[in-house]
């Protein structure tokens, strides 16, 4: 069983949802990223999404785009990201790490080389934002052969026919993009998200993660009632950006937000059950 599947099973048995923070590799530097990843786990993260910087991040909002620009300016590369995972694994053998980025750096490195090096570093999942399953067949096969889970996105505009195809291509979990927009956008309709997650569950047994637009403890907690994993990106990256010159303070700020989210997610006593998923906040 993959590290992601094992992690999700343990949480499911304990009726808890995974808290999955996102961090842009190399922002502000490789050292700081490794330290942040450990701090995130300590603050209650169950899995880490490690951003691979790209010069033209079409699906990301300004916060993550700026983080990518800073990381690239500091010399971060796809090889550098894989090295960060290597270093993280020296002290953490159990927390799954998912790389999230765009296809071109992988295409440039070569698919075989990338998969071999990512697997040996201890990468557990790969989410390539601009690679839909239609174009991903051979890459998905390579990833699976190396026991790396190919993670795919589902969005509010995904038709049910596509939903089936995407879930078939995916393993580990599927990632529901909770709004039409880029990362870090504002408005979230909880009821709609709950509805969509329920319809995804009718199609697949894979755990369902939800992300895009989750910025505070309350939203995280409400998401945890419907989803198996809650992904937090721009809200964290904003805090990192605000304290880029003070790594200790940055870790503290990030840990603080994650702890609040963790607490809120665990406090509502039991999350989604497969028969009747509660929708919306308690009492509202």
């Amino acid at each position: 069983m993959s590290r992601i599947a094992a992690c999700m099973r343990v949480l499911r048995d304990a009726q808890r949802s995974a808290l999955v923070p996102y961090v842009m590799a190399g922002d502000p530097g490789a050292e700081e990223t490794v330290a942040l990843m450990h701090a995130m786990v300590e603050a209650g993260a169950n899995m880490i999404e490690l951003g691979v910087p790209f010069s033209d991040p079409m699906a990301d909002g300004p916060v993550i785009q700026k983080a990518a620009e800073r990381a690239l300016k500091g010399g971060m590369s796809l090889r550098g990201v894989i090295d960060i995972v290597h270093r993280f694994r020296r002290d953490d053998a159990s927390t799954p790490v998912v790389l999230m980025g765009y296809l071109n750096p992988v295409e440039r490195m070569g698919y075989d080389t990338f998969v071999t090096e990512a697997a040996s570093a201890g990468v557990d999942g790969v989410l390539t934002v601009d690679l839909p399953p239609e174009e991903a067949e051979s890459f998905t096969r390579l990833l699976r052969e190396a026991d790396i889970d190919p993670i795919f996105l589902l969005s509010p505009t995904t038709t049910s026919a596509r939903m089936r195809a995407v879930c078939e291509a995916a393993s580990g979990f599927v990632y529901y993009v909770s709004l039409k927009g880029v990362t870090g956008a504002a408005s979230l309709d909880m009821d709609e998200v709950g509805e969509r997650v329920r319809s995804i569950r009718e199609i697949t047994d894979l755990p369902v993660g939800v992300g895009f637009g989750i910025s505070d403890a309350e939203t995280a907690s409400r998401m945890a009632m419907v989803a198996d994993a809650v992904v937090v990106g721009s809200a964290l990256v904003k805090r990192m950006q605000a304290h880029a010159d003070n790594p200790a303070r940055m870790r503290h700020e990030v840990s603080e937000l994650l702890s609040q989210m963790r607490q809120a997610m665990d406090s509502h006593g039991g999350r989604y059950s497969s028969d009747a998923a509660p929708v919306g906040a308690p009492g509202g």
Binding site: P132, F152, S155, R162
Partner: peptide
């Protein structure tokens, strides 16, 4: 039919854009 010119072309976008493109 899938928009390929040999190895080139195709549809490499995030999931949200797949439906509007279809």
């Amino acid at each position: 039919a899938r928009g390929h010119f040999g190895p080139y072309g195709g549809r490499f976008v995030s999931e949200t854009l797949m439906y509007p493109l279809e």
